[in-house]
Design a protein around this nucleic acid. Sequence first.
DNA 1: ACCTGAACACCGTTCAAGT
DNA 2: ACCTGAACACCGTTCAAGT
Lengths: 203, 203
Amino acid sequence: METEGRRYHHGDLRSALLDRAECTVRESGVDALSLRELAREIGVSHAAPRRHFRDRNALLDALAIAGFARLRRVLEESLKNATGDFREQVSAMALAYVRFATDDAALLDLMFTGKHQAYASAELGAAAEECFELMFAVVRAGQQGGEIAPADLTSVSTVLFATLQGLAALTTGDLIDKNELGPLTTYAVQTLLRGLSPAHTVE
Amino acid sequence: METEGRRYHHGDLRSALLDRAECTVRESGVDALSLRELAREIGVSHAAPRRHFRDRNALLDALAIAGFARLRRVLEESLKNATGDFREQVSAMALAYVRFATDDAALLDLMFTGKHQAYASAELGAAAEECFELMFAVVRAGQQGGEIAPADLTSVSTVLFATLQGLAALTTGDLIDKNELGPLTTYAVQTLLRGLSPAHTVE
DNA sequence: ACCTGAACACCGTTCAAGT
DNA sequence: ACCTGAACACCGTTCAAGT
C-alpha cells in the first residue's frame, strides 16, 4: 500500500532521509552524518532536504523521536514475554533496555543528550515520557504488590533507570565487557531490589 | 617562575591551546571546538597547532587525560574530607563524582566516549585506570571491614560506578533536576549498600 | 624547532530560479 | 509544492617555504 506516485525524484524523500540517516548514525556515529552526503547517497540535490528538515538538528530530532518510539515497542515486548512475577518483569525490562542502549548507542546519545533541544522538543518530550512511564508503571506495580518498601516512586524509578543508563554507558565506553553486560545488569537489579525490599523479608 | 622566553609568538603554545580548548568545551561543548577559531583566539596561524597536536582528535585526547587527572584529585580530596566510616567514604566520593560529571559534562563525555581512542589511548587508559582504582579501593576496604557481603569486587564496584554515571547522565539530559542530584545520589548509594549488606544485619 | 600562507576538499545554510 | 544550482562563510588537513 506504499504510494507509487513518485514526485520529482523520490516517492517519499522525508522517509528516505530518515532511514538512510539512522543507518549512517548506527554505523558511524552522529558526527559522521553529513546532510550533503546523505543527499548524494539518495540521489537528490544537497538543498533538497531543506524542504523536510529545516536544518541538521531538526533531522536529528526526528531520529530521536523515532528512536523513542522503537524503544517503547522494545520495552513493551519485553514485558509481554516475561512472567507476571515482579522481579522477572523488572529484570526483563532492564535487559531489554541495556541491550537497546548498547546496540544503538549513537541513537541513544541522540535521544538523551539534548544537543538539539531547541526544536521539536514538545514531540520529543512526549515520546520520551511514554517510555519512562513504562518503567514507572512496573515499579508502581511492585510497590502496590508489597514487593518493595513503599518509598517515593520517583526516586526508586529514577535510581533504577540511572543504573541501567550507567551500565549501558560504561559498556559503550569499553569499561564493561559486552558479554558481561547481561549478568551485571541482572546483578544490579537484584541488588537494588534487595536494598529496596521491606526490611524483614530480606533473605 | 613561568618561563619568560617567549619564542616566536607564544611562550607555550601547547598549554595555551589546551587551556583555551578546555574553556570552550566547558562553555559550548565539544562540537563547538574549532581548531581554526582556537588559533585565531590565541593569535597564531591556523596551522600552528599542528606542531603540538597532530589533529583535532589528538587535542581532545589531551583534554581527556587532563580531565582524568583533575577528577582523580577531586576524588582524593573528597575522601580526605570524609570521616573514616565506610558509608561516609562511599557517599562522599559518590557526591564528588556526580558533581564533577555534571559540572563538566562535556569534558566527561570526552573522557568516556571513545570517539578518539585511536590516539594516545595508552596514556589515556592509564589516567583512567588511576581514577577507577580509587573507587575500587574504597569498596575493597568496605568488604574487608565486613560492611558489605563478600561478593565479586569488580561487580560491586562496577554497579556502583554505573549508577553514578547514570545519575550524572540523566541530570545532564535534564531528566533529573540539578537540585535533586545530591539527595538522589545519597539515596542510591544507601539503597545499594543496603542491598549489598550481609544478610542478617539489614535493619 | 616552530610558525606562516596558500591550497584542497569538504561542510551547513541561504536564495533566486526552475517545473 | 518540491527541487536545483550557484554562492557564502566556514571547516580540518597538508605542504612548501620562511626565520
